[in-house]
Design a protein around this nucleic acid. Sequence first.
DNA 1: TTTGAATGGTACTGTACGGTACGGTATCAG
DNA 2: CTGATACCGTACCGTACAGTACCATTCAAA
Lengths: 215, 215
Amino acid sequence: MQSPVPTRGDTRRAAILEAATEVFMELGYAGASVDRIVQRAGGSKGTVYRHFGCKADLFAEIITALVARMTAPIEHQRLGVADGAQDLAATLARFGQTYLDVLVQPQSLALYRMVIAEGANFPDLARVFYERGPGQVATQLADYLGALGGGELPAAPGPEVVAREFLSLVRSDLHQKALLGVEIPSPDQRASTVARAVALFLARYQPVPGACVGK
Amino acid sequence: MQSPVPTRGDTRRAAILEAATEVFMELGYAGASVDRIVQRAGGSKGTVYRHFGCKADLFAEIITALVARMTAPIEHQRLGVADGAQDLAATLARFGQTYLDVLVQPQSLALYRMVIAEGANFPDLARVFYERGPGQVATQLADYLGALGGGELPAAPGPEVVAREFLSLVRSDLHQKALLGVEIPSPDQRASTVARAVALFLARYQPVPGACVGK
DNA sequence: TTTGAATGGTACTGTACGGTACGGTATCAG
DNA sequence: CTGATACCGTACCGTACAGTACCATTCAAA
């Protein structure tokens, strides 16, 4: 990938990225000044512009890095079909819990706020954020559900739609409230929300064998 | 309420409010300059400051007005229990459809973006927005569901939680995608999403009489 | 018609920002 | 040791912004 021994430039670049990430997450793109970033990173303004060209490019690089960092714990959840379908409930619960925990952590909230706030000024960035972030998570879950086969889940609307339904149940309104700064949900709240999402989801898509399937 | 014949000050004030609303919704709070608002409203800068004091106060007044305007079509849906419970599906569908249509219209999206973007700088405003906006809608639906009685809906988690589950199903990920500017959902998409939300919701909470209630 | 308040137009102040220029200094390869 | 390159510190430029000051004009009430 890259040289194992970081040059001086690499160190400086990393320090600027780290400081800028913090400042951007605290103040947003418009609210963060380059001078403030330099102040936290140490060093000089010219170095920032030599490495990143302009404030917008620095921002773009940070956002894409943050998306990857945010989705990492979720993508790391390898949704194996081999476990068998009777573990569907447990798998969904685990996946949903990780998803929700990631969503409401402060860094994710700051990232969401930045992308939503600057979406009009950085349309490409907003698209990349969605595709590599929420969209990717939905696709991951959809692939798992699709691989389970039609035996368990009715393929009526396609696994993508079903996956998005589940994820929206998991988000509930906790994500919205957290985004607005109204309330950060407690771990208990999150756990019970996930549990209810799984129950509601399976009540529809995994009827007990022998039960009457409505309509 | 107020004098039926508007004074000159009233008309001027209204014109400024209208122009400022447009500019704020297009450019956000930080991106909108007072000069730009004056340019669109006509008149002079001094008049703006005489009527509203400062930019932040003007913004606050506009946000609260927008919340009321946004929720009006939803609150206007009087959820009557008298219709009987067999119309639960139709009621939910109608309510959910109105809710989703309102959510993805450009003005609502602009409002959400502004509040999320400036939530850190206007924490009180964010709280008011949530309580009088999404929170109020959820309460409205919860009151209806609660009034239906335990016969139809198991009061297990309380109607508030159940209402929020339904609304999150209706939002699905359409609201998120629209907020990010990735995709404005078509009327067909919205309708089918609402239909699926109702079906999924009722499959759990309104089992066909005589059917086996899982667990 | 007169009088006082509200308005329009414009110029202004102070400040903050993104970005650049430049001289002195540290780092590293040859 | 020598040269080239990157870095630091700082000063600077142009611009944009929120908010104020001032005066001529317009409006509405008496």
